[in-house]
């Protein structure tokens, strides 16, 4: 073996790589294992979509299944017809996500830039100010009281995005991104040309940092879209609910309803007309829909964001 590779150095790499690949049996076993793992992701999503399209009577009689005898968009129609609260929740979530995402990108990209500049005199101090928030967190109770009693962001859309906009973790990621993707020379030459720090940042640094900004924007958007806790903690008014909290309360309430329905037969009739089961799954469908549709297109930013965060800066 070593003889041939010395004799044919050009083929060496490929040969050893082939030799070094896993055996065909192991390869097949790995494929089977991965397919099974992927099923645990894809099958549940499939079940939700099928259930949301199944006629309510079929769901009540036969329960949740992997397939439906007939399909109907009734639950989705019901969602749009009856669902003024759903619409409000959807609107709130979209507004909170967009505004919060914009605030994240602005505040994080701005905070991280001075921390990446060696000539900034207070660099270490302000790095510590942000890093400390990752080490020590005052906890839920102080956050609850400060938000409600001092900042007074409760029962408003602010509660849905302001506490989630800034993150020291993404500051560190963004700082790493600047130091590794924006060459020092570019910034130096801009300064020699007489550009101010703000001008250098906006016209030179930001365009070079676009992939990093996209990553921050996406993670922040997902975080706000999926947030449930802050809404539950700080919002009591139904007109300010976000989607996650809305569908959470519907799941617990509808479960309560269907339990009632089995106990009280007279109530069962009214419940049957309301497509509770399919309706719930349709709400889950519209809540996760945008994320699943967007996910394949942005996956590389997600991966790069996580990878960047792993680099110690």
């Amino acid at each position: 073996m070593s003889k041939t590779s010395i004799a044919q150095p050009a083929k060496k790499a490929k040969k050893t790589q082939e030799l070094n690949a896993v055996s065909p049996v192991a390869n097949v076993i790995m494929h089977i294992a991965f397919i099974l793992i992927c099923m645990t992701v894809l099958v549940p999503l499939w079940v939700i979509v099928v259930a949301s399209l199944t006629p309510e009577m079929e769901l009540i009689e036969e329960g949740y299944k992997f397939y439906a005898k007939s399909l109907t968009p009734e639950a989705y129609g019901f969602l749009f017809r009856e669902g003024s609260i759903i619409f409000t929740a959807y609107k709130n979530t979209i507004i909170a996500t967009l505004v919060g995402m914009a605030l994240s990108v602005v505040s994080i990209s701005l905070y991280a830039y001075p921390l990446s500049r060696k000539e900034f005199r207070f660099r270490r101090f302000f790095t510590f100010v942000s890093f400390f928030t990752m080490l020590f967190n005052a906890g839920v109770v102080p956050f609850y009281f400060v938000s409600r009693q001092i900042l007074k962001i409760d029962n408003s859309l602010f509660a849905l995005f302001l506490p989630l906009s800034f993150s020291a973790y993404w500051v560190i990621v963004m700082r790493t991104f600047y130091t590794s993707n924006v060459p020092d020379g570019v910034i130096e030459s801009a300064r020699i040309d007489g550009a101010s720090e703000w001008r250098t940042f906006i016209q030179i640094v930001l365009p070079l940092a676009k992939p990093g900004l996209a990553t921050v924007a996406l993670f922040s958007a997902i975080g706000i879209w999926n947030n449930f806790f802050n809404c539950m903690l700080l919002v009591d008014t139904a007109e300010h609910y976000n989607l996650q909290y809305m569908i959470y309360s519907t799941l617990s309430n509808a479960r309560f309803l269907s339990e009632m329905a089995t106990q009280v037969s007279s109530l069962g009739e009214t419940i049957a007309r309301l497509p509770t089961n399919a309706f719930r799954m349709a709400m889950a469908g519209v809540t996760m829909g945008p994320i699943i549709l967007a996910y394949p297109f942005f996956q590389k930013y997600f991966v790069s964001g996580i990878t960047l965060g792993a680099i110690k800066g």
Binding site: Y113, F143, L162
Partner: peptide, 28 residues
């Protein structure tokens, strides 16, 4: 002048951390 400019860039982030990280700390 550069340090001043850099400090001004920190302001939005400092505001967020003040409200949601540092303000709750005394309340412990």
């Amino acid at each position: 002048r550069a340090d001043l400019a850099y400090l001004s860039m920190l302001l939005p982030g400092l505001a967020f951390m003040f409200c949601f990280n540092y303000l709750p700390m005394p309340a412990i």
